[in-house]
Amino acid sequence: MTVFNTEPAMRLHRVGFRYGLQTVLDNIDLALFAGERLALVGPSGCGKTTLLHLVAGLLSPWEGQCEHRFQRIRMVFQQPRLLPWQTTLNNLTFGLRALGIDPRARQAAGRSMAERFGLHADDLAKYPDQLSGGMQSRVALGRALIVEPDLLLMDEPFSALDIGHKARLYDDLVRLTETRTSMMMITHDLLEAVRLADRILVMAPSPGRIVAEIRLGLAAALRDDLYVHHNGAALMQNPTVRSAFNLPSSTAVSVSSHTETDVLITPVDSMNANPTPNAGVTGC
């Protein structure tokens, strides 16, 4: 199991959010460590995207505190949101232009990133609507990673992709974020969460809240398909997870009783949250 000994790099304390009279998030406590990969799973409408937007600073909490030490937070949105009037290369280097990097350096960085994501030289001159959905997703991910963020936020970035594209992007992502990038991602897909995350938070709706925390032992780079499916099936049998997704308690999925799983599931009531704010932190 990956152990993070340092103080959390981000901490949300009793965060709540409302759209008008509707409470979307209630009493959210969570901590994220530097270099940690965190996945948020839960049914549609449980406030995952709202929570991610709060962390990104695109929304402000109605109540509670959100503080972090990250210097550069970048987000991969649910839709790629590539600029239709810019070429693939210019979309990749969008973040570098924002940082004022000189044209020659950013072109080189853009070409290098394109190569790492398997984009051909011909593709760099194309406009987004000339690219396939998978290529657009790769460009969106490359656009966020090219500026070397210390926190990468992702809102179901792989939901529109086939399993082949997903597998390649998972590998790319694990490789490119192996060193010092923290990650917080939303997914509906438990297997995706098991594939990529060190820790999974399960959310339930009405109002959106965290109901369970799941820790995975093996490092993401070492997980194979067997590991992912075995532990994914184990999660699917957990009553708290099933309840969050409004699934019936009985299930056709079975995991052999003699096979050990690599997940530690903790209901949120017994989580030991430490809400003490740190010095020198920034509000979300």
Binding site: H53, F77, Q86
Partner: peptide, 20 residues
């Protein structure tokens, strides 16, 4: 959508105009 993108990528006012 593009306003959120510009905000997240920390574009200044001039860059927002030119880029978006």
């Amino acid at each position: 959508q593009y306003h959120d993108l510009a905000h997240n990528f920390e574009l200044n006012a001039r860059q927002r105009w030119v880029e978006i």
